[in-house]
């Protein structure tokens, strides 16, 4: 971790900008610039540890962060992967003696703005727009977690995998590679189940496994599978 020179938050920063209905006003951004602390973390650095006392909430300027919970047996469930403009660890700021609800790790090199817990009351007082932006972030997160609960409770691993493959193949132009362990952590299962499910989808000609490539062959069948 390294602290950088004094924060400079402006409209180019993407802070609060993406995936949010509203952005902070120019005045509020200037105000926030005096409160947040810029931080940079290399990929694979654990930024927040579940259960530790909350020190700050973070707003992503560049890079991707994965938020996850870990069982005592070491099994990981990724809750969400976040990108520029999104925030994490905001919930404990609102709680007395709040602890971090989940761990967060830098998936890539990341630049963040940290809003320290002790500065949060001042930030809300000086930048009233901030409360609305955080509430919108909460609403988006609640909707996401509700969908995640439905997936984990009501869909089979094969169904979740089919949906995940469709989302990835239909997603952004940036090619991302996934190991079977990473897929398992995202889908609430173990590597073995991912391997078995991939083989089953292959046997049913919905996908084809090439070297380093999962090729989707049958959209209709995968979409039907994703409903199970």
């Amino acid at each position: 971790m390294s602290d950088r020179p004094p924060a400079h938050v402006d409209h180019d920063s993407q802070l609060f900008a993406s995936r949010s209905e509203s952005t902070l006003s120019a005045g509020a951004l200037t105000c926030m610039a005096n409160i947040v602390v810029p931080r940079a973390y290399p990929a694979e650095t654990v930024i927040v540890v579940e259960g530790e006392p909350c020190e700050a909430a973070y707003f992503i300027v560049e890079g991707n962060v994965e938020v996850y919970r870990m069982s005592f047996q070491g099994r990981q469930q990724v809750l969400v992967r976040l990108g520029p403009g999104q925030a994490f660890n905001t919930v404990p700021l609102f709680q007395v003696n709040g602890c971090n609800h989940a761990s967060a790790i830098a998936h890539t090199d990341v630049t963040l703005y940290a809003l320290r817990k002790e500065d949060f009351p001042r930030a809300l007082r000086d930048c009233p727009d901030l409360a609305l932006v955080i509430l919108q972030d909460f609403a988006n997160r609640l909707a996401h977690l509700t969908d995640l609960v439905e997936d984990l409770a009501l869909r089979s691993v094969r169904g979740r995998l089919a949906q995940f493959l469709l989302q990835q193949a239909n997603g952004s132009a940036v090619t991302q590679k996934w190991t079977q362990d990473e897929m398992a952590a995202h889908l609430g299962t173990v590597r073995d189940m991912i391997g078995r499910s991939l083989r089953a989808l292959t046997n049913e000609r919905m996908i084809k496994l090439d070297r380093g490539r999962i090729v989707l062959l049958d959209r209709a069948a995968l979409e039907a599978e994703a409903q199970n």
């Binding site: 990835q168 193949a169 590679k177 996934w178 190991t179 590597r191 391997g195 084809k208 496994l209 490539r213």
Partner: peptide
């Protein structure tokens, strides 16, 4: 001879082997 079956990744006790997949349409 390597078929990218991912057995080596699965059996490595320290996670030193990575077999990653792109996901794409045919």
């Amino acid at each position: 001879d390597c078929t990218y079956c991912t057995t080596c990744e699965a059996v490595c006790p320290v996670g030193a082997i990575t077999c990653a997949f792109e996901i794409a349409w045919d």
